[in-house]
Amino acid sequence: MRPGLVLRVAAGVAGVALFAVAVRYAVVRSVDVRPAAWVRWWVTAAIVHDVVVAPVALLVGWLVVRFVPRVVKAPVQAGLILTAVVVAVSWPALRGYGRIASNPTYLPRNYATGLLISLGLVWAACGAWALGRLVRGRQGRPLAVSKRPTATGTGSRLP
């Protein structure tokens, strides 16, 4: 067998062994892990991604590609990606789900303000980028500086 194939088979076997550890732990510690709820959670997570998150991203992506002017397209895409990530990560804090009246050391900050500041900086950076592209576009230069010469045409799937 080729060394690459040996490694791949080894990785596959090791992966199955790790599955076994997960299942064994979930069963042995079923009082804590609650296997039914545990499985439901990660299966639901995958389904929610495929049925909700991915289609919404497709739709938003399509809207941007279709309606946002060429010059600011990339900065808008970047701003939306950054916004989605920052909102997703800060969502529990923003909504204050974990806030306990008796313990003010949980979620001690004003997360709405924090989010506004973060997104303000993100969109300011994207705005500056868009402005740069706008100026370059007016001067008839490419929208961005490429470090390597680009071959055009062959194999490109541009519309």
Partner: peptide, 19 residues
């Protein structure tokens, strides 16, 4: 404990995926 069990599951999935 659920996070721990899921980490083995995920790493197992990662190894099979890499293979």
């Amino acid at each position: 404990k659920a996070h721990f069990a899921a980490s083995w599951l995920t790493m197992g999935g990662l190894l099979v995926h890499v293979a």
